[in-house]
Write a protein that binds this DNA or RNA. Structure first.
Length: 945
RNA sequence: GGGCGGUUAGCUCAGCUGGUUAGAGCGCCUGCCUUACAAGCAGGAGGUCGCAGGUUCGAGUCCUGCACUGCCCACCA
């Protein structure tokens, strides 16, 4: 591979190439591990995107986080399975195809069910893969060989199996209940699919005449309603038994206006005396509360609307009208006939269909339900016991609250696209048969004419089963023994109830008694877990991505940020890095491009550091081959039977020939530790920032600058010091790339491959070992010494800037130190000081007395440094700076003394803190004195203020 | 009606279990095209950590109240 990289990083040119390569080489495919496998396993199920989906920022965040965790585990030697697939997404997909049909002026009923479904499959084949292709662009390291679709035959069979089993266990029942009905989608939807919205509405008060109250004086009972059209279906008026206003009316009847139907006045808890008039109309077929009241009192249910929310023949004169048109007419008629008492402004929350936004109508219909309590109980237990942990922890309570207040789940949908309910109705006796396969005869009457129930299942019914159905259930497979329970689930809060909760319920129920392969379980770190029926051991809930103004992104608002467009402009790596760096757990992400721009600059920085490295490698004819790395084994993927990859940073043959070498090795180990710790607790932002700061702020800004003199050998002279420096540089670069790889997979792969000149030890950096910290390589002395060196150089740069010394002018400096030890340190680093371009020092000389009185001098706790330059300093500016500095020191000193003078503090604070403050006090005294001296000498040379 | 989060530099955000001098990026100002990088280098300005109390030797960090703001959940006509 050529080393002459372009001067600027061009992500577009390399990213698609590596994405394709990873797939082509099947680097992330995981065959079923054989019996006796003892390596740890990490399993992650991709929340299946809708087949209709286009990649949005939420996906991108989700997938970036998953890919980071997955790559990290893989590089640490786990058998790492990330399982991808797509969801058939019942309503959403059906809507897309219906929209398509509408362009041809057709409706789905024109085609008929079979033809329509064929059409959906065609559509799916054509457009369904789009989102997965987009995923590939992100570099998601999933196992494409295991890709599934929720309507694949094997998964569909599992769905039927689950349905039949639940039915046989009595956990599925069918019945006529009030459900949320979307008149546009023409189907029932679950409570979760209804989104409530506050709107300014009206509350109408209508009076119903009481029959036979008194012959001379008409009496009325007044009720309030927000949906007056439903009065056509009223079958009672309810008052509270304790409400004395109405005691005399108990047992009486009223005449329903417009319909002239006699309906009873009943007493029921439904009516609360404090609200409105205390009397309430009861419409059992159109309101869930009324439905229950109706059952209590055995009231008739009069359904007055059809599936489109148009009034039906039960609505008398209003039949055929749309619900809102009917409302208008009814109000007009009531007003005209004197029944409308009042119209008040009223804020109400309207339920709307999550998919299409149509106002949901409570509707009485025959549906299938899951009796949820028995399932919920196990799901609660799994989380309460800690068998499943939820991060961040506050979601645990949210989950439990929901689970504790759960209602039976309506699982039938009146759609065509989806898993059809495996139930058949006998044409003759109307008996319902639930079976795995189509029955030939009715077991009750022997009739052979049976018709399958036309409903399909809620999409979440099948996706709730995925953790085990994708692993071969209902068969007992080796895959299940190895990969179930999956290790982790990373998902958005939005689908905590839709999906996460349901997976837990189904998993705990259907996998009860399942045991994970004990050796693998132990190796993976789950030996302490008792319950292997759970679908995953941990859940990580990530934030929402908002736009730069913290607004929720939505198509209607038009503020959707297209991740692919961002990727196009800044590169996938930079986009991934942005999301990782902003993903502090628990808070939403306001995506702003300026950050991505900054991380593109970071990629460019890495790129150019690589160019620098290659430049030297080429000049020295240095070969980075296996022989160069001595015996750590850290590059090899762990062999079979090896529980963990060998530890260590993988920095082999790193020669500690100078301060900067010792320092950078120590720093690398510390950073490695921090990054691993951060990833272990999903602190993506911390991991990303640690690497960023290290690579740019330490590796590039200091280490590379400091080794430049060593690399710059004279032509024809001994180049062995340069070779050593180069080896260290390459070594460290390799390790840094591995550290960064999970976050920025593309650029790291590109450079890593280039380092091996087309002959890498592994097919990909993605298979190399992740650096692990070696605490023996923490070197506090080197870090301290380096800090002093940096401090000295920065102070010189500082003074130069202030004295406005021409950048090209070399200056001599004087240094005064209090301790001989420090002097030795500085002397050891003379070459480094003299080679720093910005300090541009000509000569260093040590002096015996404090330099604090000199203009152009700086004092620190450990040394004074004086830049010798004839140019006069700006006295006013300098005095201002010193005064400010002094003020700061005085403030700190006062605070310091206050604490040290406090006996309570001395008694209670830990020794370390007290010790630190004491040391600081000494420093402060010294520094204060020096600044004062400088100010005094300044006043001798310049005008007073 | 309940529950949960946020409020730190001009902007976007870090700051884990309370501990010495509150950080970063962008933006801004000054100076540099220094032989990896101007998507860069060096230097600099900028914060009473939303408000008011409290606990503590010590509070950006813990507690209470308030203000503003966002999110979720809820069948009260």
């Amino acid at each position: 591979m050529p080393h002459d990289l372009p001067k600027s990083y061009e992500p577009g040119a390399i990213e698609t190439r590596w994405a394709d390569y990873w797939i082509k080489e099947k680097l992330f495919s995981v065959p079923t591990p054989p019996l006796g496998e003892t390596r740890p396993v990490f399993t992650l199920l991709l929340p299946p995107p809708n087949v209709t989906g286009r990649l949005h920022m939420g996906h991108m965040l989700n997938q970036t986080q998953m890919d980071i965790i997955v790559r990290w585990h893989r590089m640490r030697g786990f058998i790492t399975l990330w399982l991808p697939g797509t969801d058939h997404a019942g309503i959403a997909t059906q809507m897309m195809v219906e929209r398509d049909l509408a362009k041809e002026g057709k409706k789905r009923r024109d085609l008929g069910r079979e033809k329509f479904i064929e059409r959906v499959w065609e559509w799916k084949k054509l457009y369904g893969g789009a989102i997965l292709d987009q995923m590939k662009r992100l570099g998601a390291s999933v196992d494409w060989d295991r890709e599934y679709f929720t309507m694949d035959e094997n998964l569909s069979r599992a769905v039927r199996e689950v349905f039949v089993r639940l039915y046989e266990e009595g956990l599925i029942y069918r019945g006529k209940y009030i459900v949320n009905w979307c008149p546009r989608c023409e189907t029932a939807i679950s409570d979760l699919e209804v989104k409530h919205e506050e709107v300014a509405g009206k509350l109408w008060e209508i009076r119903y005449p009481v029959i036979g109250a008194s012959s001379e004086k008409l009496e009325f009972i007044t009720v309030a309603t927000t949906r007056p059209e439903t009065m056509l279906g009223d079958t009672a008026i309810a008052v509270n038994a304790k409400d004395e206003r109405y005691t005399h009316l108990h047992g009486k009847k009223v005449l329903l206006p417009l319909m002239n139907r006699e309906i009873p006045i009943i007493t029921d808890e439904l009516a609360q005396p404090e609200f409105g008039t205390g009397a309430v109309k009861v419409t059992p077929a159109h309101d869930p509360n009324d439905f229950k009241a109706g059952q209590r009192h055995n009231l008739p249910q009069i359904d007055i609307m059809d599936e489109h929310a148009h009034m039906n023949q039960n609505a008398g004169a209003y039949a055929g009208l749309d619900r809102y048109e009917a409302r208008k007419r009814i109000l007009a008629d009531l007003r005209e006939q004197g029944f409308l008492v009042a119209e008040k402004d009223y804020a109400l929350s309207l339920g709307k269909c999550d998919r299409c936004g149509t106002v949901v109508e409570p509707r009485l219909s025959e549906q299938w339900f899951i009796k949820i309590q028995p399932l919920a109980r196990k799901a609660i237990e799994a989380v309460e016991s800690g068998e499943i942990t939820i991060v961040p922890e506050n979601y645990k309570q949210i989950y439990l609250n929901w689970m504790n207040n759960i209602y039976d789940w309506c699982i039938s949908r009146q759609l065509w696209w989806g898993h059809r309910i495996p139930a058949w109705t006998c044409d003759q006796c109307k008996h319902v048969i639930v079976a795995r396969e189509e029955p030939l005869t009715c077991p009750k009457c022997g009739n052979t004419k049976l018709e399958q129930v036309s409903d399909v299942l809620d999409t979440w019914f099948s996706s709730g089963l995925l953790p085990f159905t994708t692993l071969g259930w209902p068969e007992k497979t080796r895959d299940q023994a190895v990969f179930y329970p999956t290790t982790l689930l990373i998902t958005a809060y939005e689908i905590l109830f839709f999906w996460v909760a349901r997976m837990i319920m189904f998993g705990c129920h259907f996998m009860q008694g399942h045991e994970q392969d004990p050796a693998i379980k132990k190796a993976s770190g789950w030996a302490d877990k008792k319950n292997d029926s759970v679908p995953f051991r941990q859940v990580y809930i990530h934030a929402l991505v908002r736009d730069a103004d913290r607004q929720k992104m939505s198509k209607t608002k038009g503020n959707v940020i297209d991740p692919l467009e961002i990727i196009e402009r800044f590169g996938t790596d930079a986009t991934r890095f942005t999301l990782a760096a902003m993903a502090a757990p628990g808070t939403d992400i306001a995506f702003n491009e300026s950050r991505t721009e900054g991380y593109r600059a970071f990629a460019n920085k890495i790129w150019n550091a690589a160019r620098f490295m290659f430049m030297n490698v080429d000049r020295l004819g240095f070969v980075w081959a296996n022989s160069t790395r001595v015996g750590t084994g850290a590059f090899a993927r762990p062999a079979q039977g090896e529980a963990r990859p060998q530890g260590g940073t993988g920095i082999a043959a790193f020669t500690l020939s100078s301060l900067e070498d010792r320092w950078i090795l120590s720093r690398f180990n510390r950073v490695t530790k921090e990054v691993n710790d951060a990833l272990a607790s999903y602190r993506f932002h911390e991991a990303a920032n640690r690497i960023y700061d290290f690579f740019w702020g330490e590796f590039c800004d200091w280490y590379i600058e400091l080794i430049k003199p060593r690399l710059n050998f004279e032509e024809g002279s001994d180049n062995s010091p340069a070779r050593i420096a180069c080896a260290n540089l390459v070594n460290l670069f390799d390790a840094s790339l591995r550290l960064l790889h999970p976050v920025m997979p593309f650029i790291t792969e590109e450079i890593w491959q280039a380092m091996y000149e087309g002959n890498p030890p592994l097919k990909s950096i993605a298979l190399a070992a992740y650096p692990q910290a070696d605490e023996n390589q923490f070197d506090l002395n080197a870090e301290t010494e380096m800090a002093i060196l940096q401090d000295l150089i920065v102070n010189v740069r500082n003074v130069r800037a202030e004295l406005k010394v021409e950048p090209k002018a070399k200056v001599p400096i004087e240094v005064f130190v209090h301790e001989p030890e420090i002097r030795k340190m500085i002397e050891r680093s003379l070459a480094a000081i003299l080679s720093d371009r910005s300090a541009n020092v000509e000569k260093v000389s040590f002096v015996d007395g404090s330099l604090a009185k000199q203009a152009g001098a700086r004092s620190t706790a450990r040394f004074d440094v004086h830049v010798i330059y004839e140019k006069k300093i700006d006295v006013v500016v300098e005095r201002e700076r010193l005064n400010k500095e002094l003020e700061k020191l005085e403030k700190e000193f006062a605070n310091n003394q206050r604490q040290l003078g406090n006996e309570q503090f001395l008694a209670k604070a830990p020794e370390k803190v007290v010790e630190g403050l004491r040391r600081r006090a000494q420093e402060l005294i010294g520094l204060r004195e020096k600044i004062k001296n400088q100010l005094r000498s300044l006043n001798g040379t310049g005008p007073d203020i």
